[in-house]
Design a protein around this nucleic acid. Sequence first.
DNA 1: CGTTTGGTTGACGAAGCTCAAAGCCGGTGG
DNA 2: CCACCGGCTTTGAGCTTCGTCAACCAAACG
Lengths: 252, 252
Amino acid sequence: MKDDTAPVLTPMLRKLTLWAHLDADDERALLGLPHSLVTVPRDEPIVREGDRISHCWLVLSGFCARYKDVGDGGRQIVSIHMTGDLVDLQNALLGIADHGVLTLTACDMATFPVEAVRELTNSRPAVKDALWHDTLVDASIHREWVANLGRRDAPTRIEHLLCEFALKLEAVNLGEQLNYELPMTQHQLADATGLTVVHVNRVLQALARDGLIERVTPRSVLIGNWKRLAAAGDFRSDYLHLGSLKSRSRHR
Amino acid sequence: MKDDTAPVLTPMLRKLTLWAHLDADDERALLGLPHSLVTVPRDEPIVREGDRISHCWLVLSGFCARYKDVGDGGRQIVSIHMTGDLVDLQNALLGIADHGVLTLTACDMATFPVEAVRELTNSRPAVKDALWHDTLVDASIHREWVANLGRRDAPTRIEHLLCEFALKLEAVNLGEQLNYELPMTQHQLADATGLTVVHVNRVLQALARDGLIERVTPRSVLIGNWKRLAAAGDFRSDYLHLGSLKSRSRHR
DNA sequence: CGTTTGGTTGACGAAGCTCAAAGCCGGTGG
DNA sequence: CCACCGGCTTTGAGCTTCGTCAACCAAACG
């Protein structure tokens, strides 16, 4: 609960300082946010659409997703989150949840009372700016997803998602991530790309057949040739606004 | 340029005060933002993806849209804006545009230098909160669009969009809007719903045939039975976060 | 070992796309 | 005032992508 404990919140700090100048006091204040730590098993709904939100969640390890349910029983994943991501800040600030959150894998998470976040942002403008920026980047990613779902065919959509995933992984790990394990089932992948499981399955096989990825297990993704996959997936990383990240130069 | 001119910026103010408490000084400061007025003809790109943004735009009258171009020459509209909407605030705050903006109809617009907005938000925390909230609502709408494109079929998508449009119109006009003229061509409607012109055309006819809307001209939309259309379009207005708006109770 | 969960396959059908042409204004210029 | 033009809408025919349904398989787990 205090910043003399191990600084579990540093992943968040690292992400925020990507795009805002925080002085030592700001950082201390952020790391000192009152929080509790929770481990959530995989495939667990953390928040449901319609909930009144009093806490917001930070992913410390593992993966989770935000989603919306639609009338006919379908589900659409609207974004995917990993270490350092403040999930549900948006729900928290808006008061009532317009979307749900679920874990894709088991996750270590920290939760903050919204009021603590509010107080923090009110007392430290730089922190407010950083969090605002964070939500703006989320919105930018949403826009790209809109384009992805609206105007790209199934293979392109999946390729695009795989690229996004690789880059985000790289951003949190500070290393190359051309070889990773997808933290979701094909069903969830379908829910993220607006397709059906069956079709996702076939497209993944096609991608492997075309040499765009290699799969040793069903979930594993090895990107042999980044440029080729990015081109096929119509992927340009700009929308992630990772500007200052070194990797950006490499992944045009 | 001063608040002794006619308060052209009031539509924006009205929208922002929907969800934030602004005191008299805040309001004065907002209305006093240095701006210039521009009339933009219809179908004009105001901002292009990749532009470095120094100004942000406010719609005073008319309609415009934010869009992204995709690799194969397609275009996806990611949101639609009307009187009182601050379009491009997001691009402005992020620095370089991750999406374009174009006018759907001729528009009267005001432009502000970003720095002026920055100064304002820094000196008046309540204004910053209001603008932040505004961008959060935009993000919520993006999420709904993701769900719309990913998990609803063509008729449902279009019905949903028609509902959203009606409610937003109502929000700015403070009156019922079950009868309006769509400010876009079927081609643009297709770009908003991820469909083709041809299919949009056929679906619109089907909606009319089913009595969900009436069309006296190709663009006109008359909603005879809101509840039926909303049900068919899987439309729940919550994601618009119009909470305090009276109309909400009527349109469940 | 059964059971469960996720992945894979095949046959079939439908929603939506493509291409191509024709109709329908409203505007413009002769 | 009429003929023409260009942008938008509408129509039809044929095709493709993706969805549905229904199994079957493989690994993981108790």
